[in-house]
Nucleic acid binder design. Structure first.
Lengths: 224, 224
DNA sequence: ATTTGTCTTAACAATTTGATAATATTAATA
DNA sequence: TATTAATATTATCAAATTGTTAAGACAAAT
């Protein structure tokens, strides 16, 4: 999967903050916290989270204020916002959603419900992501499955693409031949010794660029 | 806003149905109703609603079943679904959201909360909704179901249209054959290996334009 | 009932790919 | 430098993948 989703949590109660952080981090999200509304705005601006969870009742700027403030900034017009509230009545819920939030969650927090909501919201948004490697003037787009060098498309066959994609994923790192076999061919496929070489050759030929270095007796590495 | 949003409500209690219908219609939505799960599926198919509100507890097919059934059909992969439930416990909520719903609502119904949730969901979706794709001199109108090239209408059969529409939704992106099968044919439909090819061929033939590229071993992509 | 058009499949052709073998080249080391 | 191990190069071939055409099942329209 691409990069980790960032989630910002703002609540003045340390316990709640901790519970949320623990559960979301365990699910693989990158979590940031804020102890009040103003801090939330600052961290939101600096971290550009994908989702912001706001407690409504906070000293100073409350959650609704923060939400309105953020929604007025283009950077956050598409950010997911969830309210956290103990006030379980019509009024606050309505106010929350009308101020531009995507959902709200009642306290006490039920971790499973929280995670489900978060995932449900992300499922809807996730679609607009990109997965491109950019190394110098070389661009490898894993989604579009193409390689561009100096704004010119280069057609690589599947194995060639996967091999280059692997090497370029960690420029400078030397990949052992075994490692390459496992990653590109799989653990149970057996191919001859020269197979990798031939593919490397084709890549070098097609790219016409000195970017794959042979490390004799060890493997190959990609560099600039 | 474009045209009226369509909402389908499925509940076995006539009272609830009426309350919901009244409130949503008053807000300007076009409302359809169903008295059970099977009717819901039928009406969903014929009306293509933008939002479906499903009672979880219904005789016969319950809401979760209906949701799963619908989500497996490409037509409904992006339709909003909200559950309606009196069961106020973790388990049912989690199950609901995991079966692909976007939100849930606890009974008793509080009209204002309902409307806020509905509006919050629509607000988020509206942005990704583009019924007319324009790529170069090619125009794909998903609502009218037609394709124009150089101001000339081109008649595509439904599967052809959906396939082209999918590929053109992300120009440059390579769609894996599997991905295409899921999106166009649905997750549980099984068709032979050559079916996609044949449809691709027909599109190429009818458009008479070099815009669909084969990426051998991977899939197809659309490009100007 | 007949026509029309859509969707799928089967059969075969055409193409591309990936692996190998054979040979050449390179780099390290005795 | 001669030797050797490792890699590079090239051509070739079988397998995998896709293209094409025609035909039949089915549904919708006439």
């Amino acid at each position: 999967m691409s990069s980790k989703k960032k989630i910002l949590i703002a609540d003045d109660e340390p316990d709640i903050l901790e519970i949320l952080q623990f559960n979301l981090a365990a699910e693989g999200f990158e979590v940031f916290t804020a102890k009040n509304g103003d801090e939330a705005i600052i961290k939101a601006t600096s971290e550009s989270p994908d989702l912001i969870i706001l407690d409504i009742m906070m000293p100073g700027k409350n959650g609704i204020d923060v939400c309105k403030h953020l929604r007025a900034i283009p950077q956050f017009s598409n950010t997911l916002i969830i309210f956290l509230t103990a006030i379980n009545n019509d009024l606050s819920e309505v106010k929350g959603l009308e101020s531009g939030a995507d959902d709200y969650l009642n306290k006490p927090i039920r971790p499973k419900v929280l995670l489900s909501k978060v995932n449900a919201l992300f499922r809807r948004i996730v679609k607009t992501e990109e997965d491109v490697l950019q190394i110098g003037n070389l661009q490898i787009d894993r989604e579009k499955y193409n390689v561009r060098l100096n704004n010119e498309d280069i057609l690589l066959a599947r194995k060639e693409f996967e091999l280059l994609s692997l090497l370029a994923s960690k420029p400078g790192k030397v990949f052992l031949r075994n490692e390459i076999l496992h990653q590109v061919w799989g653990t149970d496929v057996i191919v001859g010794d020269r197979t990798i070489d031939v593919h490397i050759r084709k890549i070098r030929q097609k790219l016409n660029l000195d970017c794959i270095t042979t490390v004799k007796g060890v493997g190959y590495k990609f560099e600039l």
